[in-house]
Simulated assay, not measured.
Amino acid sequence: MEQTIPLPFSLNKIKDLALTAAVPAVTGGFDIRFENTIHTYHVPVKSGEYELVLCLRGSYKKTIGPFVFDVYPHSIHLISPAYIHSSAEASEDLLIYRLVFRKEFLTNDFFKENTVDNLLELNPDYPPIYGITEQHFIAIRALYERIRHESQVENAFQQSMIRLMVMELLYEMNRACEKCLMNSTRHLSRQYQLVNQFKKLVQEKFLTLKTVQEYASLMFVSAKHLTEIVKNETGQNALQIIHNRIFLEAQYLLSSSSLSVKEIADQLKFDNSSHFSRFFKKSAGLNPSQFKNGL
């Protein structure tokens, strides 16, 4: 049975694949919500909120924009509203704390916007997930639980207290980020930089650029070289990464919009809906209409 209390974020203990579609959209900057339901969503989503996720136990695979990474115990990761994200392969013992909030909740006459932006804009060259020590994990988990407790009781200055604690969480996440970067920046190879540049370009231009050669030209390398370094770094070929991004967008549009299959094919710049259907079926094992009807 779902229990909803109006709050400006949501904090969930989630088991199973409760990780992609979250809660109904946060309304404005000051609508707060707490949920204790188990969700099971398997499709890509995009919302207007940030999500800050602490993994207590178990694991799953997370895709956020150009990054695909494993979520593991004693890690914290941030989901930006700028990206489509999805989750898969959740372990049976998965347990996470999840905080969902709008930036406006923090910046509305409380903290300076540039201060909040600095905390939310992490290093774009690395996946936004950070491992934390046992001592740090205990402190962060306690902070989530304090937010949860504050959201469930009516006290004076409730929203101000919650804002302060959310900001403290963001500072703790950035502290973990800085520690991870100190340990990994020196290992940032030229090959990694090129592959990361390619992935970012795919995020920006997948609707108009469909071939490896087009991306290679933008990067001033040969298509052969780009294919080789992407394969070495990711285990995937470059064309597969382009197709995966188109497929992700197709799933998102089919699951979240009222557009017809033909309209989605047009939006994704396919020659016709038949071409789009063949492309989609090759990746999903079923055609777009079957996918949409099965949601």
Rank of each mutant, 00 (worst) to 15 (best):
F105K: 09
F105L: 06
F105Q: 01
L106R: 02
T107Y: 13
N108W: 10
N108P: 00
D109M: 05
D109P: 05
F111H: 09
F111K: 13
K112T: 11
K112W: 11
E113M: 10
E113I: 04
N114K: 13
N114E: 15
N114L: 13
T115F: 11
V116K: 10
D117H: 02
D117W: 03
D117C: 09
L120E: 03
L120Q: 03
L120S: 06
E121Y: 00
E121H: 03
E121R: 06
N123P: 03
N123S: 12
N123Q: 12
N123E: 03
P124V: 08
P124Y: 05
D125K: 10
D125V: 03
D125Y: 10
Y126V: 07
Y126M: 02
P127V: 07
P127D: 01
P127G: 01
P128F: 05
P128V: 06
P128C: 05
P128H: 00
I129P: 02
I129F: 07
I129M: 06
I129Q: 07
Y130P: 04
I132E: 01
I132K: 01
T133F: 10
T133E: 15
E134L: 13
Q135Y: 03
Q135A: 15
Q135V: 04
H136G: 06
H136V: 09
A139Q: 08
A139C: 10
A139T: 10
I140V: 10
R141C: 03
R141V: 02
R141K: 11
A142F: 08
A142Y: 07
L143F: 02
Y144E: 07
E145M: 03
R146S: 13
R146Q: 13
I147G: 01
I147Y: 00
I147C: 01
I147H: 03
I147D: 03
R148M: 00
R148F: 05
H149N: 04
H149G: 04
H149V: 11
H149L: 08
H149Y: 15
E150L: 10
S151W: 04
V153P: 04
E154D: 02
N155H: 12
N155G: 12
N155C: 12
A156T: 02
A156V: 13
A156P: 06
Q158W: 01
S160M: 12
I162S: 04
I162V: 12
I162T: 12
R163I: 01
R163F: 00
R163V: 02
R163G: 02
M165C: 14
M165I: 08
E168F: 05
E168K: 09
L169Y: 01
L170P: 00
Y171C: 08
Y171V: 15
E172P: 09
E172W: 09
E172K: 12
M173N: 07
M173E: 14
N174Q: 09
R175L: 13
R175G: 14
R175W: 09
C177W: 01
C177N: 08
E178T: 15
E178A: 13
M182W: 01
M182G: 01
N183S: 15
N183Y: 12
S184W: 04
T185N: 14
R186A: 14
S189Q: 01
R190V: 06
R190F: 12
R190I: 10
R190H: 12
Q191D: 07
Q191C: 05
Q191H: 09
Q191N: 14
